[in-house]
Design a protein around this nucleic acid. Sequence first.
DNA 1: CAGCACCGTGAAAGCGCTCTCAGGGGTGCT
DNA 2: AGCACCCCTGAGAGCGCTTTCACGGTGCTG
Lengths: 346, 346
Amino acid sequence: MHGHRPTLEAVAAHAGVSRATVSRVVNGGAGVRRALRERVEASVAALGYVPNSAARSLVTRRTGAVAVVIAEPETRVFSDPFFAQQLRGISRELSSCDTQLVLLLLEERADYDRVGRYLAGGHVDGALMFSLHRDDPLPSMARASGLPTVFGGRPGWPGAEDDPGLLYVDTDNRGGARQAVEHLLERGRRRIAVITGPLDQTSAQDRLDGYRDALGAAEADPALVAHGDFTAEGGERAMAELLDRSPDLDAVFAGSDLMASGALRTLRSRGRRVPEDVAVVGYDDLEPAAWAVPALTTVRQDVQDMGRMMAGLLLRRLGLEPDGVPSGTPLAPVVTPARLVVRDSS
Amino acid sequence: MHGHRPTLEAVAAHAGVSRATVSRVVNGGAGVRRALRERVEASVAALGYVPNSAARSLVTRRTGAVAVVIAEPETRVFSDPFFAQQLRGISRELSSCDTQLVLLLLEERADYDRVGRYLAGGHVDGALMFSLHRDDPLPSMARASGLPTVFGGRPGWPGAEDDPGLLYVDTDNRGGARQAVEHLLERGRRRIAVITGPLDQTSAQDRLDGYRDALGAAEADPALVAHGDFTAEGGERAMAELLDRSPDLDAVFAGSDLMASGALRTLRSRGRRVPEDVAVVGYDDLEPAAWAVPALTTVRQDVQDMGRMMAGLLLRRLGLEPDGVPSGTPLAPVVTPARLVVRDSS
DNA sequence: CAGCACCGTGAAAGCGCTCTCAGGGGTGCT
DNA sequence: AGCACCCCTGAGAGCGCTTTCACGGTGCTG
């Protein structure tokens, strides 16, 4: 079985037609008379023919694969179910167009060269890129190579918004944060602190902006703002800082569930009750958020669906037609809504 | 920049040599005189030449890519950072041999056809397969297609152990479980219950066997055994069952951290104190295990390293030489150790 | 000094596929 | 019945690369 896979030629001989006809049948069968088509299909089945993708993409100049590039310092990817969900959404969408998913994980500086070469090497038809920081070299590499690219999260590098062809899928971070903080205000909280993510990522900046929106531009007590890095440890530290600076705070909005869980830990160890003394709201609605004690109020974004949309956007950019998208839809960035989920911590 | 990538021919012309010579240089340069080689290398750099992988694999019959196949009902992958870590380990190892990672996620029955066809289609040189249940059709598909394959977790289908060429990486589930239960015994617990995973996965079965080992074969009170499905909800249900059947239990060993977290939830809602009334031990050492309240005692396995080893095994099977492996090492299954991590829940 | 082996290089034959192009046969129209 | 036209089909030319094979040149041996 191994090694001698039948070629187009073999199928053609078996069916008594030419290679060209078999090729046409294999690629949809348009313009081949019914009887012939069925004969060819029978031969294909009989011989167990599978097209050789290398030969095919050599001539079509398409690979039928797209890269998913994830550049993230170890800590986050490790503990974050986020990417698994995104990947699943992406995978599902891609498979509807028979497109493969090549996963490129970057860890060190040295990986950039490897990945850049790969992307420029025409191994894939397009790319999906995630969680880039403001100064990440990847986007410009992608642009230089002319590779169609869709970003996860609104790009933040200088001039990004001016690029008319720019494609991304983002969630309404600012609106979500605003909802979270408005909810705290409604609960009667008045000294609401915030733990931000790394501000060179637009998601973190947008969530901070939403916090400010809700409080009204006037109020922006710097003693109520602490910076984290989207990790639990970062949240723990930031919470400690906040308590030292502003012992009178009565609520905290954390820019991620991971940071919120760290904050909960600090609050517990300092003897503050949640939500009686301090209300806590997170962001992301990771599954473990619901297990936390007390169960975490948070902001939900449909991560899997965002993955699906990114893939859909890229596929359409490549001229394919993913399932369930009306074919006239214009190609444009997408911002999905965010929704507050109230649980016990607020 | 886009569209007109230089070919071997162009480089040859630029350097004033033949295509064959350029090809040799690009592929390591063996058997090309120093001066010529340098001239060719200069031309390659000057033109920004990147080999066309389709053309190359058309003739070499190798793709330089391996598939990572993950077949898992939604629930688990979603909430489990497990796979992200495995993937990272795999990715790191593969990139040391310039091999690409094609990710294949299966959800529905229908996906099996698609993936089977893909694997049989010669798109990849080998495959890594995860978390297969006893009756999964994938392994036999892989064997039928002659695709070199390494499994994550000891395969459990009939006859698996008799296959001399079988390659897998597993962790010492049985030993880890034994450690966990022995630890509970040392703490003076006498009525130790167990929540198993789905027993058609060897990892779940092995952990149950380890539990029995520790208690001594004699003791196997069926009232102390409940079945979960590796999810938090399953753990919750199983714990409720156990409490109903055996109200006098004083410890529970859960076959996964996720199930342990569910068990904690049930214990809390039933007013049992952990660890005073009931000690709890999990398995996997997921990051959130450490945030649980109380912090979860669990069994650690180096998941990332297992991924690395799987990839390494496959690469060697493919005749490549991954970093850091003495070249004489025989090709054989690997079982990595498991280690108890004691925290507050026991 | 002839002859041999060997090394480095180039010419050329494909790898399996797609797709243009031309031609054959059928159909509809006049 | 004849003509134009269109629809199907097959022949063939590559896609960019690797690799065999033959050849010229060099260094060595007899």
